[in-house]
Design a protein around this nucleic acid. Structure first.
Lengths: 138, 138
DNA sequence: TCAATTCCTTTCATTAATCAAGTGAAAACG
DNA sequence: CGTTTTCACTTGATTAATGAAAGGAATTGA
């Protein structure tokens, strides 16, 4: 991990579909040398994969919420199954220490759907909801 | 946005560097037809860009924290500047309604660095810290 | 019924990725 | 100190993907 590798990570973060030739020009290497470095970063697990940023807003999911769940019971599996079943709304979730047991990042088309979600999980957990009004970074 | 477009989004989320030919095979179209659909999704802003997943852990940032900031004063600019200055640790932050004013997702090499960060922001805000122990999804 | 439009395929030229050598500099070792 | 190994890179040849153009089928609307 030298400064060239850091630059590669920064450029690929900005455009992960850049050609190796183009990326090579940015870091002053040939496409072949650049591809070799990228392969190493992949093999080291530093580059964990390539994705797209999907605009949830453009897809009509305009409610962006973070739900902190505080579990009622020690058995969490049915709760986690519910989260996995809702892949359309639940984009990521974390087991946490601190306030709650889980922090769930989710997107909904309307507040009604958020309400439905909260009703569903209230079987397993109490919750606190934080609504994201504006996102910065990334 | 038909089912083919949805499949395209799913496949590109899994591998954003897939060739159009390969993606076309997944969605039963030629590479050219697939590329045309992808271009439309880009122009509609649904595909907001291409990125890499960078493993913060592999880079030595093993502490993953969500910091809820409750501002002392109405002027937030100096606080936001501080967050922007810390691009190495602050990956995203949100203006929120709910518990706090801002929710900050950040990564640190050690708890010491987290402590330094908290000391820095305590000038502007009180805070609550939630540590992510395990991530699911994405 | 007849354009106009959309969405796709096919074909071909262009461009990029990949593979195989080959070079040079630094590191490892007798 | 000299030799060899290793590493990161470049160059050149081959293979694959992309982009542009042309054309065909299905859909829409006057």
């Amino acid at each position: 991990m030298d400064s060239t590798d850091q630059l590669i990570l920064r450029e690929l973060s900005r455009n992960g579909r850049m050609t190796m030739k183009e990326l090579g020009e940015k870091v002053h290497l040939t496409g072949q040398a650049t591809a070799a470095r990228v392969l190493k970063l992949e093999e080291a697990g530093i580059i964990d994969g390539y994705t797209i940023r999907v605009s949830k807003e453009k897809l009509g999911y305009i409610v962006h919420a973070f739900v902190t769940a505080i579990m009622h019971e020690p058995r969490h599996q049915k709760f986690l199954d519910e989260l996995d079943r809702r892949q359309d709304t639940v984009s990521r979730y974390f087991k946490t220490s601190g306030e709650g047991c889980y922090l769930i990042e989710c997107h909904f088309p309307t507040h009604q759907e958020l309400d439905d979600f909260l009703n569903d999980i209230s079987e397993f957990a109490s919750y606190k909801v934080t609504i994201a009004i504006q996102q910065y970074g990334q």
